[in-house]
Amino acid sequence: MKEEGHIDDELLGRWLSGEMTPEELASFESSDSFETYRHIAEFSSKLSTPSFDDQALFDKIQVNKRRAQAPVVKMRNYRWVGIAATFIVLIGIGSLFFVDWGIPAQDAVLRVSTDAETKEIVLPSKSKVNLNVASTIEYDRSTNWEDERVVELKGEAYFDVTKGRPFSVKTSSGTISVLGTEFNIRERNGTMEISCYEGKVKVTDTKSQSVILTVGESAKIVNGKLVTSWTPELEDEPTWFTGESSFYEASLENVFIELENQYGIDVQRNQDYSNRLYSGAFVHENLEDASKMVFLPMQISYEIIGDSLIVIK
């Protein structure tokens, strides 16, 4: 077998960490083997590990570590443990009564929704959320944000998460957990799109399949299942920040929903467009322009009458 242009192991290794010099890279990219290596790198990053139930395993560890510890605890300490335990139970019951009689339970849960406007919210841990139109975010103010940071999202939002405790976003399509980073989630109509703009994000679907995204990478969950072969080109920030909604291989039905959300109109269609895929963008400040940007490339005619947009065919 002919081996062209011997490349040194270390030098080749530096390719995947982005540490080749521009000259080294140029020469590597022009070699015959480059395309093979590029495919190896691409497909190997789509491999995954078996699902991991961290809560279950942590519970086991909690049980077993107490057992491991037990022999060294003196009798006297046992009594203390007993007293402490009673105390905790009492507090637990006490607070239940409070919830029943006094403060309404939902007081603890803060819900912020947008209709036709966008909003910026600062969470207790100083992380920021930009909420796009027609979206809702919910979180529990009574939980200790030092321990656990969890928010629930319906719709689309951009997250700028401060470093610290693990931060997760729950949606009906799956959970995103984060390791201090910036990312965008769009969850509409059973499809969730996640794009990572800084740091690392872990995406887990409803079947516990997961993938880690780094800067510039995106993933999509369709009906609860992860699709990692979806690779849009990302700008420096989500396009809705600058007054556009952009799509990459998105179901046309979801584009219609976004049009309805952005303009507060009703898109009337007499057939299902979910199998037609749209890649492109529409502007937010002018419905006529926006409609052209969606319908012209798809070769679909339409008419705007009052608050309705009628899709003809």
């Binding site: 015959d32 083997s33 395309e35 093979t36 495919h39 497909f43 789509k46 491999l47 995954s48 590990t49 399949q209 997961s210 993938v211 369709v222 299942k225 992860l226 699709v227 990692t228 072969s229 979806w230």
Partner: peptide
Amino acid sequence: RMKYAESGVAEKTNIETPEF
């Protein structure tokens, strides 16, 4: 033997490199 996370609808393509 690791499995691919990928699922769903991506269309299958041929892989063509100068080598194969």
